[in-house]
Structures are given as C-alpha cells and as structure tokens.
Simulated scan of single mutants.
Amino acid sequence: MAAQETEIKSSASIIPCFLFVELVLMAGTVILSYHFEYTDTFPVHSQGFFCYDSTLSKPYPGPESTSRPPPRLLYPLITVLPVLTILLGEVSAVFINPRWRTKEKIISCGDCCFFNPLLRRVVRILGLFSFGLFCTVIFAGAVQTVTGNQAPHFLSVCRPNYTALGCMSHLQYVSSPYACTGDPELITEARKAFPSKPAALGAYAAVYTTMYVTLVLKIKGSRLVKPSLCLALLSPSWLLCLLRVAEYRNHWRDVLAGTVVGSAIAVFLVTCVLNNFGSSTPEEKELQQKEEDEVPIPENLHPPAREKLSVVQDCGTPSSNVT
C-alpha cells in the first residue's frame, strides 16, 4: 500500500501571531522574571519574628554557590535534561511511528514559507516549556515578595540585638523593620523562603518531562521501561527538596509549596494548552490496539494449532450476532 502524502495547510496568520503575540508575551515574562530575580524593583515584605525563635535560629549554610546542588549544576539540569528528552522523543517518533505524517501537516504561509511538521511541533513544545519556566519564576517570586517568610537561618543573618529590643520571653513579637543588624543582602535573601524557587523549578521541569514521556513515548515489549524512566526524571526533584531542608535553606512547607506550584503550572500547560501533547484520542488508541492484536494466522499450521490461535485472538472481543 502506498504511503499517504503529507497534506499542506495554508495559514496567513501563523507568522504575525508568532511575532506580535507569542514573542511579546515571552519577552514580557523574561523581563518580569529578571526584575523579580536580580533587581529590587519589588521590595520584599518585612515580616516580624518572635524573640529566640528556634525555628529561625538554624546556622547559616552559606551562599547558594556552596550548596550541594549549586546553581551552576541545578539550572542546567532543569533546562538541558527536559530539552534533550523531548528532542530525542520527537526525532525518534519520526522514524518509528509510520502514522506521524498523517497527524501533522505542513503549513504554508505565502508562496515561500513552509513550516515542517517536526519543526513546528518541537518549537511548540519547547517554547511552551520555556514559557512555563519563566512563569514559575514569576509566580514564586511574587509570592516570596508578598509574604516575606523567613528561612530557617534567618536569625543567624539578621543578628538582632535582643537587649535593645527588650526581649524578655519567647512569646514576644518583634515587628520593627530595623531590628536586624546583619548584612542587608543576606537578610533580604533570607526573607524569600516561601515558596522555594529551586523546588518549584525542579518540580516543573520534572513533571513536564514526565508527562511527555508518559503521553507521547511509545515503548513496546516492556512495561517497566516507561515507569523507570519517569521515576528517574522525578528523583532529582525529590532529592533537591530534601537537600534544601537538610541544609536549613528552606522549611518543609516551603519546598512542599514550591513543588505544588511547579507541578500545577506544568499540569495546566500540558493539559489545557498543549492538549496532552496532541496524543491520540481514545478512538485512535482503540483502533491501534486492535491492529496490534490482529496477528495473522500462518497457513502452514495444523488445524488444531490454527483453532487454538483463533480462540486466543477472539478472546475478550464481543461476539457477533448470529442470524
């Protein structure tokens, strides 16, 4: 049977929409995330504390660069690993899945611009992944700025003068914004604990990639390859959360909130925007399953063997009405 030719669909709005809508939104999220991450455009809320609060008196673990998962390792892992996984999955689908060309269409914009289906799909998936990363940074940074919740080592960098503050008991609350005498930069960073931004980014990347592996990749012959791959993708995110708590950089509730934020953004983008990466509908999956189950019966089998094989194929299928 001859292969079906790939259809060409004409669209005059794909380039203007990409240039004047999608790029503008992406640029806006990048600029806003930059202001939350590297500038003091949005001042952090100065939340008070209780005198001698043991939950905020943990030792200072040092700057982020001295962490066990340092930023130079964490952020490339969050970005490079999902990108490589998606690229490998999309390129493999072109060669493995013979029906791929019937699902995606070449889009022409005018007489000279033709957009390859593989390129369009990769740009759509990776572009939305990048957009979600910046949205995660913005959302986590906004919540940190509004709440101003302190890290477990807050009092170690704050260095309050309890005598001048008149602290007589553990129940006394200090609300003065000038109670701290330590380094202002360290104090500001210690007020950005809830939710944990590294935990949110790690959860977003892990859940997005795991959903891609679960919904798109087709691995035949083994039921353990796909779950094992998903667990391998989720494990670094869990390990990151444990290390953030163990190093006194975040409370357990901070990493839990960050994980919920990142996972929710990933699930929303995949299900509501990407429509589960354009995976097959239930009818298409049922048709594919039927075709996979239809094993031809060899002609050289003996009659008893042919009868047994026919019974195995018909097992579980509804019987036809007999007139």
Rank of each mutant, 00 (worst) to 15 (best):
S196V: 07
L133T: 07
E286A: 14
L269C: 07
W238H: 12
Q289Y: 07
S169R: 13
S108N: 07
Q150L: 06
H251D: 04
T163A: 12
V216E: 05
S108Y: 10
C109Q: 09
C109G: 04
L301H: 00
P117K: 05
F194L: 07
L215P: 03
F129W: 02
V312A: 04
V261A: 10
G62V: 05
V273C: 01
P304S: 00
Q4V: 13
L229V: 11
S92E: 07
C17H: 11
A12L: 14
R121Y: 04
S320V: 13
I187F: 11
Y75Q: 05
R120T: 08
S228C: 12
L84A: 15
P71D: 01
K290A: 12
P198N: 08
R99W: 07
I187D: 01
L128A: 15
F18S: 15
L25V: 14
L19Q: 12
K285M: 14
A193F: 09
K226S: 13
R99I: 11
D111S: 15
L215V: 12
L231Y: 03
P304F: 00
N250C: 05
E37M: 13
I219V: 15
L118T: 02
T147Q: 10
P69T: 15
L23K: 12
V255C: 02
A200M: 09
K290L: 11
P59W: 06
S280R: 14
L186T: 10
T281Y: 06
S169H: 09
L84N: 07
W252Y: 11
S263V: 05
A305G: 00
P195R: 08
